[in-house]
Amino acid sequence: MKHRIDRHVLSFWQDKEMRLEAAHLLDLTEEAMRKQLAVRTPFLGLGLAQWFERVLQKESLSYQARGGFPDAERVCYFLGQNTESLEYLPEGITLLAVVSTDPHVNLEHRQILGSLMGLGLKRELVGDIRPGVQGMIVAVVDEITDYLLLEWCKAGRVNIRVERVQGDLMLREDPGEERRITVSSSRIDAIAAAGFNVARGVVQEWVRQGKIKRNDLIISKPDLEVKSGDIISCRGQGRLRLCEAGETRKGRIGWSIILYRIQKR
Rank of each mutant, 00 (worst) to 15 (best):
T182N: 06
V183F: 03
V183K: 01
S184M: 11
S184R: 07
S185H: 05
S185R: 00
S185D: 02
S186M: 15
S186L: 15
R187A: 03
R187C: 04
I188M: 14
D189G: 11
D189A: 11
A190R: 03
A190D: 09
A190C: 12
A192N: 10
A193E: 09
A193T: 00
A193P: 08
A194E: 05
A194W: 00
A194Q: 05
F196M: 04
F196P: 02
F196A: 05
N197D: 13
N197I: 08
N197T: 05
V198C: 08
V198M: 11
A199F: 07
A199L: 08
R200H: 04
V202A: 14
V203G: 04
V203C: 08
Q204G: 13
E205C: 02
E205R: 02
E205S: 04
E205G: 02
W206F: 11
V207I: 13
V207M: 14
V207T: 06
V207W: 14
V207G: 09
R208V: 08
R208H: 13
R208P: 04
G210D: 14
G210I: 05
G210H: 09
K211S: 13
I212A: 10
I212N: 06
I212F: 03
K213N: 14
K213A: 13
R214A: 12
D216Y: 13
L217Q: 01
L217Y: 08
I218D: 12
I218P: 08
I218W: 14
I218M: 11
I218K: 12
S220Y: 14
K221V: 13
K221N: 15
K221E: 13
K221I: 06
K221W: 10
P222R: 03
P222D: 10
D223C: 04
L224C: 07
L224A: 15
L224Y: 12
E225V: 01
V226Y: 01
K227P: 05
K227T: 11
S228P: 00
G229L: 13
G229W: 01
D230R: 01
D230K: 00
I231V: 15
I231D: 00
S233Q: 04
S233K: 03
S233T: 03
S233L: 06
R235C: 06
R235E: 09
R235P: 07
R235G: 12
R235H: 13
G236N: 07
Q237F: 09
G238Y: 07
G238V: 06
G238L: 09
G238Q: 03
G238H: 07
L240R: 01
L240S: 06
R241A: 02
L242I: 05
L242M: 07
L242W: 08
L242Q: 07
C243K: 09
C243N: 13
E244H: 08
A245E: 10
G246Q: 04
E247R: 00
T248M: 06
T248H: 05
